[in-house]
Design a protein around this nucleic acid. Structure first.
Lengths: 208, 208
DNA sequence: GTCTATAAAGGGATAGAC
DNA sequence: GTCTATCCCTTTATAGAC
């Protein structure tokens, strides 16, 4: 079996998937026409149907690849070594940075989470969530078992809080930027550093 | 001027707006047809064009009303009296409860925030954001000025963290529910109580 | 104000040549 | 594998009677 042949055979499919990913990332399912995808891919509309039986299948294929890639990017970003505190700080910062580095993938997957009550979204989205939650919960539990953290908080709750802070930042960055008292809209690293410090030390003075 | 007449005159328009709001809340702009709106409103499709020149204008009218209502609901929910800590706790809980009470409004406005890079979204969305941020930042600043909170954190950052936690909970509740270590997916009050306690006391033991 | 009927355009999908 | 041409349906929007 010749590799070159396999690559050529897959080339058309790849072009379509890339074009579809780009367009589906920018607009919702119904707002993207097969015609637009064909134009973006530089092929004819009918040719798409040689590779995919219908629009829905194409969309699902795009979503499958995208969520897989996003998951890999995120998992890669948050892997770290060092003390519990260092790992936590790096997790927060790198997770957010990974989101900001791949805005299209995030938008694509996240829209699926928000729009569809359908079961297919969950399949992909939950994987990414589960990875992040597991990693983060493990870090927090380790901190607890070592006595570096309190024992009386729920690690899953803190994980939700931290992931939510990053997702919210990613989603509403443009709005945050236009709101005067906010100075960190263009400083994601500073944002996460501030958040982690607050989480660690709390709002109430230590003397209390 | 007779009130009844005014109400009858506005009735058709109201029926259309209500139907459109319901459908636009459930699906994206391009996924909702004028035909579907007409059916939902129980009138003919052509009749819609007597009140609105085109689909885009109708959508914008829906968005305008929805964001106004959502803003009122949220502002109402978070108004509270008492000690700084009580106000903070009530803010968190009531804000999230208000989101959960009006899921359609939240979805409608929030989709607009996420989808459009367009300027019109900002106009509405920023108002709601500004209200919440202002109220929350004021509470935090008051706590700081009274010495009940540390001086060395950014109130806007904590406000973002808290609002983000609630929005994230609202958005990903279905996913959270299916993830084993999470026990608070159906307990928003407990979720916010836990979050606020963590924020106040921090993760690190007080002895450190 | 409300309707039926229809126009004009674009959508997804297919047929069949090459 | 890729294309052009086409089918059929739905879409937005309009015309015009009542």
């Amino acid at each position: 079996m010749d590799n070159t042949l396999a690559m050529i055979e897959g080339e058309g499919r790849q072009r379509i998937l890339a074009a579809a990913e780009k367009l589906f990332s920018a607009k919702a399912f119904d707002a993207v026409s097969m015609n637009a995808i064909a134009c973006e891919a530089g092929i004819s509309k009918a040719n798409i149907y040689h590779y995919f039986p219908n629009k829905d299948t194409l969309y699902l294929a795009v979503l499958r690849v995208a969520s897989h890639n996003l998951r890999a990017v995120l998992n890669e970003a948050v892997s770290a070594h060092g003390s519990v505190l260092d790992v936590l700080r790096h997790f927060a910062r790198n997770h957010l940075q990974a989101l900001l580095n791949r805005p299209q993938l995030v938008r694509l997957v996240w829209r699926e989470i928000l729009e569809r009550g359908a079961p297919r979204a969950q399949e992909f989205a939950e994987q990414g969530f589960a990875d992040m939650f597991s990693a983060l919960v493990d870090v927090l539990k380790l901190g607890q078992s070592r006595g570096e953290f309190r024992q009386d908080f729920d690690p899953a709750l803190v994980a939700t809080l931290l992931l939510g802070a990053n997702v919210f930042f990613f989603q509403s960055r443009d709005i945050l930027r236009h709101y005067p008292p906010i100075t960190f809209a263009d400083d994601p690293a500073g944002y996460d550093a501030g958040i982690v410090e607050i989480l660690l030390r709390g709002l109430v003075p230590a003397s209390s």
